[in-house]
Nucleic acid binder design. Structure first.
Lengths: 226, 226
DNA sequence: AAACATCCTGACCATTCGGTCAACGCATCG
DNA sequence: CGATGCGTTGACCGAATGGTCAGGATGTTT
């Protein structure tokens, strides 16, 4: 991950004398704090979020949040790492021999579900990038760049095999990212314009189908099996 | 616009005894402050931005910023209104009789240029939506919703005339918005992954062409003239 | 019971927050 | 020369910021 962070002193706990009740409390509180912090950071950004607000959202005193998490900065980095881990699990193994249509649809679908399952984390990530990615710069130009270029090469080979149009694969990946991310990050806009209270599972399925159809057709993807 | 704001006491100036030098100073300072504030608000969000930071970015004392702008809130609202005005000027007059291919390409192109010409304003808008659109809610579910639905109806008529596939027009508008907005909002990600220092005019032209091609083909748009 | 370790939190600290205000600079006009 | 009025800013205010710390609560192990 190699984020630009101060020396972290986390994961030092895990005491040996832990009965069932004790560890359960700690786990529950940590989970509660992480969830609350994700909401607050996503809404207000790193600078705009206050430990006090996170504590109130978690229903705990401020001191308790700092007791568990050490510092605001450490809490934020931990949330980013959790989100990046979810991200990295996506579409981790594809090869030139796979079917382009299947892979692209799976890509769109899994990315869409990631945004849906973790909307706050998705917005947290967006806020970090929007602010110039001060914590994620190394990750973007390192791991993620390799990830993108590996997949870009496969797309290019598909294009050479005539399985899809010769479009720039990096712009294509950005197109899919942006289109899917939009429904989490700009949820307020989507809901305001459509007049809905929330996006139902059926809505998400419809959007996924729409994106798959337009993007696959737009890139001239031909299924291998057909 | 009808934003949820406190009673504004702006535009009260314009004194009659203004020689050339005086009005010029005011205009220059206001411009400087607005530009600096747009950068800072875009990067850190409303809560995370401080008047002190805006003042430093503008090269003025904090008191001077408040003298010109009245309050942090008023400054923020003024920036949002300026950005919405730019937005509203976009694709303001289309009719069923226009050529779908031309209209969609113009839409993509002008939206892309808006993001490029005003990247900070674009990010400011994104941060506002990301935070739940506390100032823009009324605008989103009012003016902007009408704007979208008017254009959606035209797209639908084009689909009925066989000029494009029967895709959901609202999802299509969101697709274009997200794809074009991405290059301003996620600039840090785009630069990190491509390894570029900045996007050149040629890059932007290439991306515009890519998006136009994929989206038009993906929606089965047939040009009227062909 | 005594000892031990973790959990928990109110009080406190220096700093920064948005905003006010009085005072001064400085030009134009009578 | 005043007088008027906008431009400018350092000093200041109460509130909120991230973080520290001492000490009490709680429970498990001897």
């Amino acid at each position: 991950m190699s984020m630009s962070e101060l020396p972290e002193t986390e994961d030092v706990n895990e005491p040996q004398t832990m009965a069932a009740s004790n560890g359960a409390t700690r786990a529950r509180n940590e989970r509660e704090i992480l969830a609350a912090a994700e909401r607050v950071f996503a809404r207000h950004g790193y600078r705009g979020a206050s430990v006090q607000a996170i504590a109130e959202a978690a229903g705990l005193p401020k001191s308790n949040v700092l007791y568990y998490m050490g510092s605001k900065r450490g809490l934020y980095v931990r949330l980013l790492e959790r989100m990046m881990a979810r991200w990295n699990a996506l579409l981790d193994d594809i090869s030139v021999d796979d079917d382009p249509a299947e892979v692209l649809e799976a890509f769109i679908r899994s990315k869409m579900q990631l945004s849906r399952r973790h909307p706050e984390g998705s917005r947290l990530f967006a806020a970090e990038i929007l602010g110039g990615a001060p914590f994620l710069q190394a990750y973007l130009s390192g791991e993620l760049r390799d990830w993108v270029q590996a997949r870009a090469r496969i797309f290019e080979q598909w294009a050479e095999s005539g399985l899809m149009d010769p479009v720039d694969p990096v712009w294509l990946i950005f197109l899919i990212w942006s289109a899917t991310q939009h429904y989490a990050d700009f949820e307020a806009q989507v809901l305001g314009i459509t007049g809905k209270d929330e996006l139902s599972d059926a809505d998400v399925e419809e959007i996924t189908a729409f994106l798959t159809r337009v993007i696959l057709k737009g890139c001239g993807v031909r299924s291998r099996e057909s």
